[in-house]
Amino acid sequence: MDNNGSHITEYKVLIRILFILLLCTFITIEITSFDLAAFTVTAALLIAGFKSYLVLSYFMHLKYESLLLRILVSMVFLLFFVIVLITFIDYSFR
C-alpha cells in the first residue's frame, strides 16, 4: 500500500468526530458532578475509552490501516490491561 492509493478521510467526517468527542467530554463533566462513588469512575473511564477509540480509528487513521497494525495496537492495550489486573490482584491480596 503506497500513499497514492491510500484512504482520504473527508473533512466532514473529521468535524463529526470532533463534535462527538466534545459531546463525550461534556457528558463526562456532567456525570462526574454527581457523587455515585465507583460508578462515576467506571463511567468516566468507559467514556474516555470510547473517546480514545474514536481518536485511534479516525484521527490516527487505524480504521484504514493494515490488519497487522490494528492487531499490534490492540495487543498493547491488552498488555496494559493485564498489567493493571495483575497489579490490582497483588494489591488486594497482600
Partner: peptide, 15 residues
C-alpha cells in the same frame, strides 16, 4: 481535541 482535528485535516488537505 480541536487541534487533533485540525492536524488530521491537514493530511486530508495535503492528499
Amino acid at each position: 481535541l480541536f487541534s487533533s482535528m485540525t492536524i488530521a485535516m491537514s493530511i486530508t488537505a495535503i492528499q
